[in-house]
Every structure is written in structure tokens, then in C-alpha cells.
Design a protein around this nucleic acid. Structure first.
Lengths: 204, 204, 204, 204
DNA sequence: GTCTAACCGAGACGGTACGTCGTGTCTTATT
DNA sequence: AATAAGACACGACGTACCGTCTCGGTTAGAC
């Protein structure tokens, strides 16, 4: 509510209140996203709710989709948290399975599906899109990568596979079912999927 | 697949729907789709171009997206054709690889990505959506299913795997890269993917 | 009231029009008129409510306005009734005043204003319009005409005035205020109006 | 009549409304009114012809009828001009007669009838409607009021009548015939009407 | 007793217009 | 110099009725 951030007097001529406006926009966008869904995150609605001007929004983001992505990122709404760590096991394979099941559970909701759809529908050339995509799918990939690496190191898996392919093999079918919707996406599928993948990654 | 109307001739009252109007709408929608892209397939533009009324379009389709899907289906723009058959080989594994590579090539274009996105973004509860999804992904799955079955029968693959999981394993990563775009989708990826899958499906 | 022009037997072939359908249309139109107002008396709404087809309505009336007028006439909703007779007095002038006050009270309501507006807005060349107009304004004019005649005969008024002008003088200002709405239309106005008509503006 | 904004400068935020857009809308509406008639003055047609957006029109006027009224007012198409003054006579009664005959002639046309109908059909609670009504009927009433006052002052008329009633007595029958259409509205009627107003119906 | 013409309900047709929403740009007054 | 406020041109939305036109199915008078 106070105007000056005390540790950093803006020092510019004029009044660069833009950080406040930016935060208000992100908060409003996030609130609308939660309450009304992605489709209702319009520039007009956000500007009105945040009490800021539309041009101010356009100065920060190219359009409403980018604003929605930024809002999700700013609120850390995508990051899995560290729940995966809690189930950490000596066996990296079991940990991997738990981690993928948890990720699937997070995405297999209307909101999760929307987030995946936002990634799919976004303009790939935008930096913000890349960043958003990285937040949405990167965390799980990195966790899985670490676990696979450990599994290789401990001799649980053989070493002659392409890591990126392996990650796509584990994640691809989940997002495929999530987005295409031809068959249900549940824990049973998830476990059978991992099992099938591993038969290819394990020693014969 | 089949449309049984034999047991139930619907006995509709009133003037029947004009097949001419329907065809004009589909043709106009398809033309706009090709010329201007999916986003320009609006009900207004289609009605204007087809010389029909907007309400007539709404009588046939719920919204512009469904109309666009119907237009693509009506023009057989999605079906792979039977080119895959030409490359049929005695070896079902090689045929499978060829078929997936061909499918990937078809989708790894702006238009192909757009079609996949339409499937992902569509309302899953609509019959038309299901039909569209079936056209988009069904053909490849059926072909792959037949080839996998043959491979099992000829002893090239073991028989104890879940067929749907196997199909998801083959197709999922392709659509994952197509829609998420985190890594390139090319023939090399495709072949390495199949190889990785098969190591899990083959006899140890 | 009767349909048959006696000198011209219509000699019609084919199925005659259904009196039932006609009555259903009028009843539905009247019901909508009462419930939702004149503007909602659309051909579609009437057809739907009456359970008849739109073309059937168009066979009977040229458009929704004529149908609405016909509905009002069929239900006798316009005719003043004979209340005026109850107050009949020996003095035709007093009776005239009572009658005009009563008529004003009937029209000075939203519904009455609507009826007057329908007359004003109707296509004057239509027979139905003339008939409707006659029902709306004719009764009062005829009553007033009789009372004025009696007043002349009994020596209460002089005889050298134009009867139609006199009737317009008595009714015109009422409908003027009713339709134009520049000043309130109440009983006080009505009585002062009659008094002014009788006295004139000049010195006696 | 006067619009006081001096005590309250409205202190509006945001971009002010474009006078250019407003003028373009009024000009287009007026042109359509003249060329095609009142019924064709639709918001869509005006927006298209004026090269402005529909929402802009809705920002300025509540609907097409108000826009049409505003267009007529803006172009002074209703005001009688001061032609009546030219015929000004020493005798206010003759001047009054001339003025009413002139007004009748202006209204006894399809366009004039349409204007009167617009007044009758308009939403009385709207400010614009009141203003329009004032333009349509106010001028004639004011002129007549002045002439009657002069006639009283010069002893031509007695002074004990209600002025508003007198004005309604003179104008009401004209608008009554104009809108109801039961009898012709011509100069003869007009002159006889005035005569009857002045003399009254009773014996002197 | 058919024939058959005009009716009936239902409802789709091409249209026109509605009033709303959202886009991305712009203009103005304020700070 | 950036802001909030909000108007702007544009385009599309989905709906309501219009008045017309099939449909398949009565219905009653004419043959």
C-alpha cells in the first residue's frame, strides 16, 4: 500500500509505479484464472479488476495468454513442490514411478489439462512461452533425469539409451492421453506405462 | 464407425435440412481454413462465403471449431490415404517404422500441428469431437495395431504386452513433442523412439 | 362479423381453413399480449404457444401487428362495455363528461397507451386496421355523438357546429396527451377540457 | 432548456468522446432516414455508413430510435423555421390560424407523420425523448402561447381560460387526426377547428 | 370411393439486426 | 514520462424473428 519500496528509492525522474501495476495485473489475472478459468482471463477483465489501464498491460505482455502464463508462473502454481522428495526411496525406480504418478495426478484435472493446453497452444517463439513450458514440463523431466541417471549409476538400468528419448517415452504418453483424451489417464495407466518403458530400458 | 440408421428411421417432422446448405458451409469453411488458417474460420465468414445464413450454420454445428473439424473431416484432409500400404514390407516392424515416420512427417507441419491442437482443444464430450479425434489419431493407431499383432503372430514380438499402452508408447512421444515443442520432431527422433519402444516389446 | 359475403359464394376447393387453428392463434396472441406486452407478440411465439404452424398464421394475417390487433378485437378487450349507461343522466352534458372521463381512465394505463399506439402505428390501408381503429375510437365517438345530438335537441347546445369537429375537439386533446405525453392525462384535465370546449375562448 | 455545466465541470477521466464519431453517426443516420426511411435507421447500417464501430454508437445512444431522434434534432429537420413570423399580422388570431395551418401542412406528410409517431412511440422517461418531443411540439405551442397571450392583452379573447388546456385544444385534434387517421387532415379541418375552439359549443 | 387440392404441424431456409464482448490502439488529464 | 481511465475502429459472437419454402400427413369436397 505504501508507495516507496524503502530499500530501493527508484531514483528515476517521474514515477515508475510500474512494478505495482505489474503485480496487480498478475494478481488479478491469477484470481480470474482460478475463479472463472483460462478463457475469462481477458485483458479487459484483468485491467478492470486490477484497477490499471489496458495499455499498461500491453506494455508488459503481448496478449492475454502470455499474461495468464505469467500469472501462473508468478504464483508458482505449476511447480510440483517437493512432495516427490518425501517419497524418496533408496530405489530410484520406485521413486521415479512415484514421481510420475504424482505428476499425472496433478495434470489429470481440468485445471491441469488447461495448463498443458496453454503450453500446446502458445506461440513457441516467445521467450515467455519457453519459460512457461519449462516450468510446466521441465521440473518433472529434471527429476526423472536425475533418477534415471542414478538408476544407471547403481546398475539398475543399462546405460546405452538416449536420455531425452527416455524422458519423452515416460512423459509423452501421459501428455498424449491428457491432451488427446482418447483413453483415460489414471494411475493404473501410469504404472503400466512405466513398466513397459522399463522393459526397454532394463537389461534384457 | 458405422452409422446405423436402419433400426431407427428418425421420423423427423418439418422441412429436412438442406444438404446443399450443409455442403456449402463445409466447402466454404474448408476454403477459408486452407487460405487463411484455422483462426479465420468464423461463423460469419463461412456464412458470408457460402451464401447461407448464420443460423443455418448454428443449426448444424455448435460453433466455429466444430464446423472447422467437420470441414476437415468432410474433405478427408486428415486421413493418411493408403500410402502406408505401398511401403508394406514382409517385415511388420519395418512397416511400422515407415508408417510412424510418415505420420510424423504429416503432422510436423504448421497445418498438422494445428490439427493436433484442434483435437486437444476440442470439447471432449461432443460426438463430433470424438469422431474427429478418431480420424486424426485412429487411423495410425489401427495400422500400428495391425502391424504389432502381425509381429506378435510371426514371433517378432512377445505377446504379453498391453496393446493400448504399446500404441500410446509409440504415438505419445510424437504428439508430445509436436504439441509441447520442447525438442524437435524429426525422422531421427522418430526412429530412435521406435527402437527404444521395441527394446521393451521384444523378447529380452 | 360474418365472414360470408352473401353475393359471392367462394366456391373453394380443397380443405377449408381450420377455425380451431385460427382461434388457437388468437388466444395465444392475446395471452402473450397480456403477459409480455405487445412487442413480444411475434409470429414465432404465437405459433409455438398455440401449437400451430407459422404459415397458418400468415394465411390468416399479414404480420404480427395485425394478429395482435385481431386478438384484441376477438377478445373484446377494447370495447368500453356499457358502464357509461349506468351513469346516464337526464343531462346529456353531464353524461358526456362522465363518459369521456371513463374513456380517459381506460386509456391512461400502459395497456391503453399501447392500444392507442397500435392504432397510430398501423398501416392505415389495411381493412383490419380500419376495423381496429373503429373499435378503439368509434364507440366513444358514437356515444358522444348521440349525447351531443340530444344536447342540441334539448337546447343545451347550439346547433350550428360541425359534429365531426366537435368530436375531434373532445377526443383529440385526450389522445394527444396520451400519445405525446407532454403533460399528465388525468380526470382534472379531462373535465377542464370539456368545459373549455363548451365555452370557447372568445367572449360570449 | 439551458444546460448548466458551469457549476459542475464533469471532470471526466479517460479519453473524451470523439465529436467526429458522433457527428459521423448523426450524419449517416440522417442520410439513411432521408433515403430509406425511419425503419432502416439501424445501428448496423449507421455504423457501417459512418465508418464507426457499433459500440461507439451504443456509447452515445441507447438504441436506434434515439439515434434517429438525435439525428433529426441535430439537423434541425423538425424546427419550423421562422416562416410563421413572416405572415405575422396585426391580428394575433389570424396569425395563430396561419401558424397552425402551416404546422399542419408540415406534419400532414408521410415524413411528418413518422416524426409524430416517433414521439408517440418513444420511451417517455428518456431525456432525449423529452428533448425531441419538445422540438417537435414545443415550438408550435410556444408560438401559439404568445399569440394567445397577445390576443388576451388586446382584448380579443377573454382571460379566464387555462393556457395549457387551450393549447391542447388547438393542437390535440390535429395530432389526433394525424396519428389515428380516422378522418382527413387538411387545411379546411384546421380552420374549422380553430373557429370551433374560439366559439365553443354552447350558446354565447 | 377414389382423387386431389388446399389445408395442417413442423421446422429448416436465407436474411437482417440485435446488443455484447474482446481486441489492440489511441488520446486526455493526472501525477 | 508513465499512468488510469476510457473511447476508438474492428470483428465476431450467439440469438431472435422475419417471411418463405419444403416436408409428410390430414381432410373434405369433387369426380
Amino acid at each position: 500500500m505504501s508507495k516507496e519500496d524503502s530499500p530501493e528509492p527508484p531514483r528515476k525522474a517521474g514515477r515508475p509505479r510500474s512494478e505495482k501495476a505489474r503485480a496487480a495485473a498478475l494478481a488479478a489475472a491469477y484470481a480470474i484464472l482460478k475463479e472463472k478459468g483460462f478463457a475469462r482471463v481477458t485483458v479487459e477483465a484483468v485491467a478492470s479488476r486490477a484497477g490499471i489501464g489496458k495499455p499498461t498491460i500491453y506494455r508488459h505482455w503481448a496478449n492475454a495468454r502470455e499474461l495468464a502464463m505469467a500469472a501462473l508462473m508468478a504464483h508458482g502454481a505449476i511447480q510440483p513442490g517437493k512432495a516427490a522428495q518425501d517419497t524418496a526411496d533408496d530405489d530410484p525406480i520406485i521413486a521415479l514411478e512415484d514421481q510420475l504418478v504424482a505428476m499425472t495426478a496433478r495434470f489429470a484435472t481440468p485445471a491441469g489439462r488447461q495448463v498443458a493446453l496453454m503450453v500446446a497452444a502458445a506461440d513457441s517463439s516467445s521467450e515467455l512461452t519457453k519459460s512457461f513450458r519449462n516450468q510446466v514440463i521441465g521440473q518433472s523431466r529434471e527429476t526423472a533425469r536425475a533418477l534415471l541417471t542414478r538408476a544407471v549409476e547403481t546398475g539398475r538400468l543399462r546405460a546405452d539409451f538416449d536420455m531425452e528419448i527416455a524422458l519423452d517415452l515416460l512423459h509423452g504418453p501421459i501428455f498424449y492421453r491428457l491432451l488427446v483424451g482418447h483413453l483415460p489417464l489414471d494411475e493404473g495407466f501410469c504404472r503400466k506405462l512405466i513398466s513397459a518403458c522399463l522393459r526397454g530400458l532394463e537389461f534384457g
